[in-house]
Design a binder for these strands. Structure first.
Lengths: 231, 231
DNA sequence: AGCCGAACTAAACAGTGTTCGGACTTCAAA
DNA sequence: TTTGAAGTCCGAACACTGTTTAGTTCGGCT
């Protein structure tokens, strides 16, 4: 009979309602302020009941983070469909920033309140992320092949640089860390364009001999062994 | 008599021991994991006693954050003493990154675990920060005057861009968010140099007419009114 | 000697994530 | 039809958290 199927369906419905309540509460009040008891109250269950669906509050976080990463994945992939390889690179990173402003609750959850540990049993649920990153690296490689970036540029290095540069403006944006009246979008766009311009100028491939490395900066010599950003 | 003075001294000694215990525990276990009770236990006082020295756990955080910002202030100022205006700019932001790696506990406390709210009664205790930022803007202005940056570059815009670009690599560094074997220092240096190269290329003053703004990116047109990073 | 004010504490309050034992329902096998 | 297994769910508790309150102790001044 379909009894097993019905039970599975019911179980999934409760799971979904827990996740829905958590999503609403996290969005409205932030991860730290939401307790298991509040989630339980919203779905009219006892707090203990939740633990037969999710093993911990962490587990609920991971489920919502996975949702967020899928949204990000969709948005970033959708931004890499131009003919111009360079605009694909620019577009996918601009999409990353836009995601942070369009889905501030997800972004805050994913990158500010907490972060997904790199080693976790649930990491399989995030395996698609590696494909997304690989896609971003490929986009850079295509731009290099098209002559938009120096031949000597490592696409991996460029990817890490774009990531590290843009997470800042995104966080500054969602947390409103600037004085009122500041234009966060323009700041992010400036940073993105400046980083891309910097990559084009070849600085990331020639900095080994740049002044600050040879002489150290302000009496703080660069430690031996620190030479190039690993590729 | 000097009784009042002695009492003041004793009070200050207890205050310092609270702060010392908090500093050690925050460094060893992180802000969230340290409780008032743990601090109290370490200095062999009752938890309630702490509340006659600091009004809240937040207050202790602010005191330690102020310490951290003074350390940062010293380091950044010390890095702006070159003759070359451009190297002063590069140096002071590299000092910011270096601070994050040399004082990861302070950095984590100041920029990751929590952040100093922009509006706070204790904000006066952080007023020296405005001077530090003004100094950083001045350094950029001097570099512009010396011809190292385009005349049309707003030093304020450049300051915000450098800040937003470098906070990323610093956070990535203290949190070890890259695969093992990655060279965080080199990543930060690449980002810094790329951003400076981008500023030099004039991208932050001309992007108003750049392709991504005129056409939107991947079907996501830039909202009207978003034009330039406010100066 | 009496008193004041500061320092300090024990105990409690309201909250947190989580666990445990038991009650209750559902359903297939005996 | 009864039995037993499997599950779902809850009340109560545990060990915490930041913080408050009432009360005690004690040095120093009058």
């Amino acid at each position: 009979m379909g009894t097993k199927e019905r039970q599975d369906r019911e179980r999934q419905a409760v799971t979904a309602s827990i996740l829905g309540a958590a999503r609403e509460l996290f969005t409205a009040e932030g991860y730290q302020s939401v307790s298991i008891r509040k989630i339980a109250e919203r779905i009219e269950y006892s707090p203990a009941a939740i633990y037969s669906y999710y093993t911990s509050k962490d587990d609920i976080f991971l489920a919502l983070a996975a949702e967020g990463f899928h949204l990000l994945d969709d948005k970033v992939r959708g931004a890499m469909t131009t003919d111009d390889p360079l605009e694909n690179v620019r577009g996918c990173w601009w999409a990353f920033y836009e995601f942070s402003q369009e889905q501030p609750a997800y972004f805050q959850l994913m990158f500010v309140d907490r972060s997904v540990p790199r080693i976790t049993q649930q990491w399989e649920g995030f395996s698609f992320l590696q494909e997304m990153l690989a896609e971003a690296v490929n986009a850079i490689q295509r731009a290099i092949d098209a002559g938009a970036f120096p031949r000597a540029l490592s696409p991996d290095t460029a990817m890490h640089m774009l990531w590290a540069s843009l997470i800042g403006p995104a966080i500054v944006g969602v947390r409103h860390r600037l004085a009122s009246g500041e234009d966060y979008d323009a700041l992010a766009r400036d940073v993105l364009n400046a980083t891309i311009a910097g990559l084009q100028s070849g600085i990331a491939t020639t900095f080994v001999s740049c002044k600050c490395l040879e002489e150290g900066i302000a009496g703080a010599p660069v430690p031996a062994g620190v030479r190039r950003h690993a590729s």
